[in-house]
Design a protein around this nucleic acid. Structure first.
Lengths: 274, 274
DNA sequence: GGAGCGCTGTATCGTATGTTACGTATTTTG
DNA sequence: CAAAATACGTAACATACGATACAGCGCTCC
């Protein structure tokens, strides 16, 4: 079975005329980068004419050059998006038994790799801003994450609300929301219409939206001021929210640090109330 | 020092207008593939207009779109030619970007090191046992974990109940619990008396208790049939529940696999009900 | 409440790109 | 050795792509 263009070429290079073979060799030599450039550059690198390149890709079975390029890109994307394959292939050191764990760890590293300290700091600053209220809400499976975050934030600052229950209940809270307020939304596949509708309404009111979503981005990203895209792929029937969970914990920690002075006092008071 | 376009974006995303930020987020989410496609495709994916994309790349310092694409390609080429860099980056990116992340990853590895496959399989089998009911409950900060697990388990099997609300409400449910039933409890420092009391009563009725706790073990461990001890130490004012979260997800996956036949049917039915 | 500024999308334009037609060179075959 | 078929490049073409000008809109700041 042929699963990559490189294999496809190796398979058919024998039946090609001389010039096309040179094209093939050039592509393989710096696979697949040259194939992503223009026909002119490709032909120049191979030392042949443009039509030869086009005949070459046609012989590989592609209708036109863009289709060939898309194919290469898809291949690349598959390689890049699953570092797990690469990390697992040279089998895990020490015999870490659980592929689930390995995938989760990879997800977290990937998620944080796309997440700069500055972004996190910005979001933390926004959440720590005491001038406005903070609302949190989540989808079917992610609502617990919203609760988790709310449970912590509510301790270090006032005016933190988790929106639970029915959709109509949230809508009634919209009236309390304004420009200085922050709405934290958790939404991963399959994205919920109800959340999208709610986000849109909140956005119209000028509420700042912080969105936790997966790598394919919930449509709510349209309205969000800050977007956190977590990796969710694991060898399971379900998507994993673990990476988002860790980001949430990181943010909780950062906000706590910012509110240290006031927060510490609050916490002490709360302890006293027990 | 800025060595990749991703960092460049992270650096400047704060100074960008809303639409360009959407472009940035879209690119980062599926980095860097979208940037290799045409302006039209990029703009469509980001939900903005073409000129916005062009202004976005201009703001990053590129003269034109092709130059931006070449830059991305060069970056990709460098990554592909030395996969070693990619594998080495996560462990030690110079000064470990996020100590929080590092600590969390360590916690997970440690947690799973003390957790045998057999233990996990046993617990999964117990949870998949359809003869009894499943109850889940958690403490102040861990209740969301119980909810998360309940949300998933409830889909693949009937008779899954999350115990919420006030203590007196749980107590009333004790009457429904018997020897064939399982009670999943989440309890980390500072351990809650209410949970301990509840666990004891359930234990007296012969309920099988599965306990998620921290490395110092909640006193509930006395009554538990299975104990999962997760590492919780992180450089933050709060303890981390991330390791327990991952164990929970692992169990959810394992139970799902065991109930595949019945579970799949249930899931399909549920989808149909939407 | 009004004036100014900045952001964003629509419509248009020029051009670089992929594509095709055709003529010449090279090889193959009877 | 002649004749045909195939291979290859040059040059002209059409399309789709990136770039730009402009107008509408919302926001901020007097």
């Amino acid at each position: 079975m042929i699963s990559s263009i490189a294999e496809l070429i190796a398979d058919r290079v024998g039946t090609m005329p001389a010039s096309e073979r040179r094209a093939a060799q050039t592509l393989i030599a710096s696979y697949p980068m040259i194939g992503l450039k223009t026909v002119a550059e490709f032909s120049a690198a191979a030392g042949v004419s443009s039509p030869t390149i086009l005949r070459f890709v046609a012989r590989l079975g592609f209708q036109n050059y863009p289709e060939f390029q898309s194919s290469l890109q898809d291949e690349l994307a598959a390689q890049l998006q699953s570092p797990a394959i690469r990390t697992l292939n040279p089998p895990s050191p020490g015999g870490t038994a659980s592929p689930m764990l390995e995938a989760t760890l990879d997800n977290m590293r990937e998620t944080f790799r796309h997440l700069s300290d500055k972004q996190l700091a910005d979001i933390a600053a926004r959440l720590a801003d005491r001038r406005g209220k903070t609302f949190l809400i989540g989808g079917r499976f992610t609502d617990p994450l919203a609760r988790y975050m709310a449970a912590h934030l509510a301790i270090i600052q006032p005016e933190v609300f988790h929106l639970a229950g029915q959709e109509s209940m949230w809508r009634d809270r919209l009236i309390d929301m304004g420009k200085r307020d922050v709405l934290v939304i958790f939404d991963i596949r399959r994205y919920q219409d109800s959340l999208l509708r709610f986000a849109e309404k909140a956005h119209e009111r000028g509420v700042q939206i912080v969105l936790f979503t997966d790598q394919w981005l919930s449509p709510i990203a349209r309205f969000a001021r800050h977007v956190i895209a977590g990796r969710t792929a694991v060898p399971s029937a379900w998507d994993s929210s673990a990476a988002l969970f860790v980001v949430a914990e990181t943010l909780i920690g950062a906000v706590t640090r910012q509110l240290e002075a006031e927060g510490a006092k609050r916490i002490r008071e709360m302890e006293g109330l027990r």
